[in-house]
Amino acid sequence: MATVVTDGAVEEKGGLEFHPMDQFEVLPFFGDGGVAWYTITNAAVWMALAVVAVFALLVLGTSKRSIVPTRMQSVAELAYGFIHKMVEDICGKEGLKYFPYIMTLFMFIVTANFLGLIPASFTPTSHFAVTVVLALAVFLTVTILGFVKNGTAFLGLFWVASAPLALRPILAIIELISYFVRPVSHSIRLAGNVMAGHAVIKVFAGFAAIAVISPLSVVAITAIYGLEILVSFIQAYVFTILTCVYLKDALHPSH
């Protein structure tokens, strides 16, 4: 970018270099070289930081166990209450058994999202590799759980008993397709939203190289950054609530 600016601000737009996707590259954190499965990459570092953040918030923040909570403990309790209530409301009492699992998903996604908003950071949740694993884990867990808990009655999920008999086979096909599309939409929604926001910020940052446009560019970056804060939370929330909904289907397959 620096070369472009020194070359002259008179250059037209096409002369600007946009690399909005460079920020998503997975590179070794220490030194150069290839990326093997065990390499400590930037992705690994930021996931580790997410673990550290979760630990700091939920363990260090609550270490005093005070009846009148401190600020950190208050936030931790808020997160706990938020997900606990969500699981209880959607899945019912028996869903609370899976509360730690759902809380893990939520805390990982929300901290990874927010850490990703730090400039020059890396956002693990912008990668399909991550979200696909998360979504597939939910999908497989829910499907296996559904069959274990309900046996073949779980297939009742696809057999809409309240619909007219003639429509049921058609609905069953639709239900089946929508069931298998779940992990796809579940994962692409999260990664897509996070990636798009970060890429758009980068594009606006690219425009900042033109002196005339740069104030507008800065304003736009600020605005989108605000939006991204919202998206970071909402996408974590959406992912979690959908997990709860799928879990409810596994526990109570009847429509």
Partner: peptide
């Protein structure tokens, strides 16, 4: 492969932190 490996590690770490320490403690406090 790299991301999935580290992701699983991170998720396991968070799961153990939550289920062993954080959640019982917060639940107890509440």
């Amino acid at each position: 492969g790299n991301q999935i490996f580290w992701l699983l590690l991170a998720l396991l770490a968070i799961y153990f932190i939550l289920s062993r320490v954080a959640l019982p403690r917060i639940g107890g406090v509440l």
